[in-house]
Design a protein around this nucleic acid. Structure first.
Lengths: 336, 336
DNA sequence: TTTTAGCAATCAGATAATGAGAGTGCTAAA
DNA sequence: TTTAGCACTCTCATTATCTGATTGCTAAAA
């Protein structure tokens, strides 16, 4: 266990390193208000902190840099979570008041707001289809061979898709589709739209199995696309961070953001708590070992409403990110 | 006017420079098949080409680099437009056969295919709303206070939007809306959806002007958004080009792509011809002076169906880009 | 016992010096 | 008209040198 002074010094080092991205020297810390010891004393403490694994040293004659263990302690014990300014509060409020029609829009706006304030990259996904129940399904005929299907779920997702046919569809058929889908599916999970349903409908109404199959396939497709759709905000922000000054690193990062599996995994991995922080190699994917991720599962009650992830260097301003997320989380819950 | 040999040498230089991005030496050209002169002779010709403005020289003892005038001649007179491989043809065909429901999807798929083949960045927009006529408008009630409006146009655009109200909407009202919109607007330009229509509707049916206003506002909003929506494909490809090895340049480029006005302008600027090439400072925006743009207005008959732009360094493989575009253009026209 | 001043040792990063290599322009011969 | 030959130029990579920041350790001071 670290004594109080060591913790204060560690905090000062991490704070400074987050600000400057340069190894922190004993001298710069000894001048900090609140820490009134000579650089020699700080040096001794730093040597200890290094020995116990909280700090690293890039090379013999350089200052210290926080290790992952150091960041972890910093995040768990040393930061405040109300590091948010009045302007930021105002900005967030104005953004969240934007009228949205669909739940994904809300998640996306939240993510982009977050990215704007923190200057890190944000990724987000809407609620998973598997946890959503069907509120209403509506078929609308557009022209004679084009059917639009609109699906509303209990989490507020509205998804529409267009289905084209090689044969004419009659108003009567559309009516039947509307009737069957709503009677059979209202309140049921989205996943019910599948082959058994197809068979059921076919048994109820005697028109072309091809039509029914196409309808169901297309709806399944659009739901599936929805589940795998990742929104990305503020990717170019990273170019302003010193850790991306090498083109190689920047390229690696951009490619990483493009790798759907990793991103989906990242957004899925959050625990039941609201805000999760993964520092460097704590991330499940080894590609993320040089980054830190903060994820936030937006819930209403215990219903998952989508997830947001903030990706940045391990030298992330955790205090700011967490504070802003906490505030947003509170706001979103009040809203409903 | 350049004699034949000078043209052949210029072509060889541009070809080589496009391939290597390195200043081209007299020696490397003299070895090219088809050009069987000693490096000294080539040197003399190169000196001439430089004097007449077709070539530049980064410094006294370096090889030559094409000037904008050189590229212009190259594009206008020296390249072939059937520089396309069987694999590429197959790939394009397979991509274009993807079923699409909306015209924007087609433009977008075309742009992304192009970007994949050429390794340059593609931007695209759908057809402008002002040139589109309304084919059908459909209102569908979702729940009791949520109305969905679907608009189909003659160019195949399908746009839907959701309108939320603070009061209940009846099926009767929806019917009236459907009746009036379709009777009044079928075949008319999209722009007719505006205040005069609002007044007309209000004179025809006596329910809350607030509802009508909201409907029209929301539809106008979604059409406007549509007009300003730019699709971007393959932005990260530029990281592989040597001209973007400096982070500064890459950053500038990414910011450029983000500047809507410039991109919209770029896509609007094309002439009546199908394929337009703008080299370096030929571009209207000064921010684009280090880039070349190839634009392509996709038309069916003389109806504009959207525009695609390829952005790359002035050292762009014009022959490849133009060949692929020509082929795609032919394919798209056969399709309809 | 704790803190601090002082100082040699270390190392990254900037700056300067050197040299090789690629390419040109020009001259004079083929 | 073409080409071989050669001095000249300039970039780029490599090496050497210098500077400044920072540390660890020792011994004195608190």
């Amino acid at each position: 266990m670290l004594d109080n002074r060591k913790k204060r010094i560690l905090k000062a080092i991490v704070d400074e390193y987050i600000g400057t991205a340069e190894p922190v020297s004993s001298g710069s810390i000894s001048k900090k208000n609140g820490i009134d010891f000579s650089s020699a004393t700080i040096r001794n403490e730093m040597a200890e902190l290094e020995k116990t694994g909280y700090l690293d040293k890039p090379h013999t004659s350089s200052g210290r840099v926080p290790s992952e263990k150091g960041y972890r302690l910093y995040v768990d014990e040393l930061i405040k979570d109300d590091n948010i300014s009045l302007e930021e509060i105002k900005y967030i409020s104005s953004k969240l008041e934007t009228k949205v029609n669909e739940i994904e829009d809300l998640t996306r706006i939240t993510a982009s707001t977050l990215s704007e304030i923190t200057h890190y990259t944000a990724v987000s996904i809407g609620p998973k289809s598997e946890i959503q129940n069907i509120e209403e399904v509506k078929f609308v005929l557009l022209g004679s061979r084009m059917l639009m299907a609109v699906i509303l779920t209990d989490t507020g997702m509205i998804k529409e898709t267009i289905i084209k046919f090689n044969e004419d569809i009659t108003e009567k058929q559309v009516e039947t589709l509307n009737f069957i889908f709503n009677n059979k599916l209202k309140g049921k999970p989205l996943a019910e739209i599948d082959t058994p349903l197809e068979k059921y409908i076919f048994s109820q109404m005697n028109y072309s199995v091809a039509i029914i199959r196409k309808v169901i396939e297309q709806i399944k497709k659009v739901i599936n696309e929805q589940d795998n759709k990742i929104y990305l905000e503020g990717a170019k922000q990273v170019f302003d961070l010193p850790e991306f000054k090498s083109l190689e690193t920047a390229k690696k990062f951009i490619n990483l953001l493009d790798t759907k599996e990793i991103m989906l995994d990242l957004l899925d991995s959050g625990f039941a708590q609201d805000i999760n922080v993964y520092i460097g190699s704590e991330n499940s994917a080894k590609e993320l070992k040089d980054f830190s991720i903060v994820t936030f599962k937006h819930k209403i009650g215990n219903k998952d409403m989508g997830t947001i992830g903030i990706i940045g260097p391990t030298r992330m301003d955790y205090s700011k990110v967490i504070s802003v997320l906490k505030y947003i989380s509170k706001k979103l819950n009040n809203k409903n």
